[in-house]
Design a protein around this nucleic acid. Structure first.
Lengths: 205, 205
DNA sequence: GATTGAAATGAACGGCTGTTCAGATAACAC
DNA sequence: GTGTTATCTGAACAGCCGTTCATTTCAATC
């Protein structure tokens, strides 16, 4: 009689095994809430309510709140690196830079919550978690830096300081997540094209 | 016998009037702690300890924690607008854009804590505070947008979407605060120059 | 030297925090 | 139909949260 999402009465596992349901739902709820209100402001009870479960049940899936945050960030960054690794590049440094630009904007606009967390909650990571996650972030940065360096070496780009240019381009591109809305006047492809215009000109020789 | 900073014994006002000292010190401590650990993670007791005072004393200077955050952000943004209003502009849209670029980087690098708070703690503002502060932020954005629009009209810039270009440039410039360190290899002037090179090329006709 | 009032103390308030765990429940294996 | 095991409940824990306030302290004023 009680459906899976009918929590009007006391129960433990109402129908079928929930282990494969609750785990993902927990991560989705936490991601949404962390992005919306910030890690420190979100309580485990809020997350539990969103999942439709009591607080204690969450600890069947996570070691603690801090571990949950670290897992979310690590998963996001690893997905980012894997997706970029699988992304087709254009020809030469210019083609690679265009591929990176369009990929970065597309990937980030598809995961606003995960992006928000990855950029805003670094300071809430315990030191032992911070190191590994910062390393992943660095690896992604290096992907762009390599492209810029290759273009500089080939004389296609004019960048007096490759490292600074890397950070400037990434900051500019990531900024799109702070204002873009699906209901806005610009499509994602149009936005990516406009950003690519600016990036191309900014690094051009 | 008891110095001002000697808090080994019970006392209320050990020497001189503290009202003109404690207020600013409270704001400085809060700004530093909010920037470092995030608004939600910082407790009033931490702030009080930093000031060298008991918790209750803080409430002689602020209405509540939320009001403290709002005051810090409003003060920062008003200072930003006032400083830009007093900044000498170069000639024409290109000169104005260079002035804005160099001003933005200089101003932001001089106040890393305030900048961090202004960009990261917006979601921790109560709705009634958010509206006013968002309006100030918008006013600053408009300053850059006006420059770009003027340059576009004059044919000096080539910007298919002025609004998007505004947000892209601001994001790129503000990003400098996330990596710049005084002990690094680049001076602030050098950094501003390198960013100006990229901005100039990115918007160029 | 007595009075005043700003400023700080120290303790208290109710409520919320992350986390734990014994016990209840229901799906599954046999 | 019995036993096992994964899963969840419900309650509890100790501790911290923002905020308040009666009281104390002391520079300034008369």
């Amino acid at each position: 009689m009680n459906g899976c999402s009918d929590n009007t009465g006391p129960m433990a596992r109402t129908s079928g095994s929930h282990s494969e349901i609750t785990g993902p739902r927990l991560r989705e709820a936490a991601q949404r809430l962390f992005a919306r209100h910030g890690y420190a402001s979100v309580t485990m009870r809020q997350i539990a309510a969103e999942v439709g479960v009591q607080v204690g049940a969450l600890y069947n899936y996570i070691p603690d709140k801090q571990g949950l945050l670290a897992d979310l960030m690590r998963a996001h960054l690893e997905e980012l690196l894997a997706a970029w690794a699988a992304e087709p590049r254009g020809e030469g440094p210019l083609g690679a830079l265009e591929a990176f630009t369009r990929f970065h904007i597309r990937f980030h606009l598809e995961r606003p919550d995960a992006v928000f967390i990855a950029y805003m909650e670094l300071r809430n990571l315990a030191p032992e978690n911070f190191a590994g996650i910062e390393a992943l972030r660095k690896r992604y940065e290096t992907e762009l830096e390599d492209i810029l360096r290759a273009g500089q070496a080939a004389g296609v780009f004019d960048l007096p300081d490759t490292k600074l240019a890397t950070l400037a381009v990434i900051a500019m591109l990531t900024g799109v997540t702070t204002w873009y809305r699906d209901a806005g006047r610009l499509s994602r492809e149009r936005v990516a094209g406009l950003y690519w215009d600016m990036v191309r000109k900014a690094v051009a020789a």
